[in-house]
């Protein structure tokens, strides 16, 4: 066989392997209920209260405590590093298989609008790319990934580790039906930090990403369309004097968005937890988290 013919058949072979891998990964990822996006689709959550945001509310808002006080089923749909665009898409996916929640709590702080802190993790939606809205949002937020996704299997390989592991986990779940590690209310228990660590260089000025503003408004309107009451909230916060010069200015901007869209913005930084309560600027120590959840529950019942 001539060299060029061999190369041609080799490329065909590679293409078939990629096509098959694409299907296998898609299948196993869809079986991995450790992933929140899969869990909310497979198990009907139908929560009354839904929490959205990044890792801070994911570790901070404990649905078990909230449920005890409010008597409302609560699910924590916050994800590590998720920005507001990702929150929008998560909520969109949630609505596809669950009834709309009564209240939606969206964690909105200056970090939510600053691309240095949160991002859009396209890979979390890799196996949902057949959906038009998912595709459209990914195209806007992560154009490179979107372009690659046309090649079979590339949407599972563009970002290195997470999906290899998740697909394997999905396969194990499928064959062994293990449910040991599933957290049914979406809450993320975390390792206690022992020493306070500031997250920002002194004098850090927050940036403002208009895309996040656009998607926050889109998210609010999507919720309102389904009759859900939206509440924007901020976590307790500690910072040294002049550590973050434009923080209040950004909070003011968030307040303006809340006013414009006619939703409530609760600022918990006014609670003035002392520095000794904080593991970093916006994260409380475990022992103080319970205290905060009780305050949060009482406040949302108002």
């Amino acid at each position: 066989m001539k060299l060029y013919t061999k190369i041609f058949f080799a490329l065909i072979f590679v293409y078939i392997v990629l096509l098959a891998s694409d299907k296998i990964y898609g299948f196993f990822l869809n079986e991995n209920v450790y992933l929140k996006q899969v869990y909310i689709q497979k198990k009907k959550i139908n929560a009354d209260f839904l929490i959205l945001g990044n890792c801070v509310p994911n570790k901070l808002i404990n649905p078990s405590i909230l449920e005890k006080i409010t008597k409302h089923k609560t699910y924590n749909l916050a994800e590590t590093h998720a920005n507001l665009t990702e929150n929008y898409l998560s909520f969109y996916v949630y609505l596809k298989s669950n009834k709309a929640p009564k209240r939606l709590f969206i964690y909105t702080t200056p970090e939510s609008f600053d691309p240095s802190f949160n991002k859009f993790s396209s890979y979390r939606f890799a196996y949902l790319m057949h959906d038009n809205e998912v595709r459209k949002t990914i195209k806007i937020s992560d154009l490179n990934y979107y372009r690659w996704s046309f090649i079979p299997f590339a949407k599972y390989r563009y970002y290195n580790s997470p999906l290899h592991y998740s697909a394997l986990q999905g396969a194990m779940h499928y064959f062994a039906n293990s449910k040991k590690r599933i957290v049914h209310n979406g809450y993320l228990n975390f390792e206690e930090l022992h020493k306070y660590r500031s997250l920002y260089p002194n004098g850090y000025r927050f940036k403002w990403d208009n895309l996040q503003e656009k998607y926050l408004i889109k998210l609010i309107f999507l919720a309102k369309k389904h009759g859900t009451k939206v509440i924007l909230f901020e976590s307790p916060f500690y910072s040294r004097k002049n550590e973050l010069p434009n923080r209040n200015e950004i909070l003011q901007k968030i307040k303006q968005i809340a006013d414009k869209t006619n939703v409530l913005f609760i600022k918990f930084d006014t609670l003035k937890f002392p520095k000794s309560n904080f593991a970093n600027n916006d994260m409380l120590y475990t022992k103080n988290i319970e205290k905060f959840n009780i305050l949060f529950a009482r406040r949302v019942l108002l």
């Binding site: 060299l3 072979f13 590679v14 299997f153 390989r157 563009y158 290195n160």
Partner: peptide, 22 residues
């Protein structure tokens, strides 16, 4: 001389285990 089988295997290894995003 190029061995097409070896080349195919290395291409698949790159696709499956390579890091593209970072």
């Amino acid at each position: 001389k190029m061995n097409v089988i070896h080349l195919t295997l290395i291409l698949l290894t790159i696709i499956f285990f390579g890091v593209f995003d970072k």
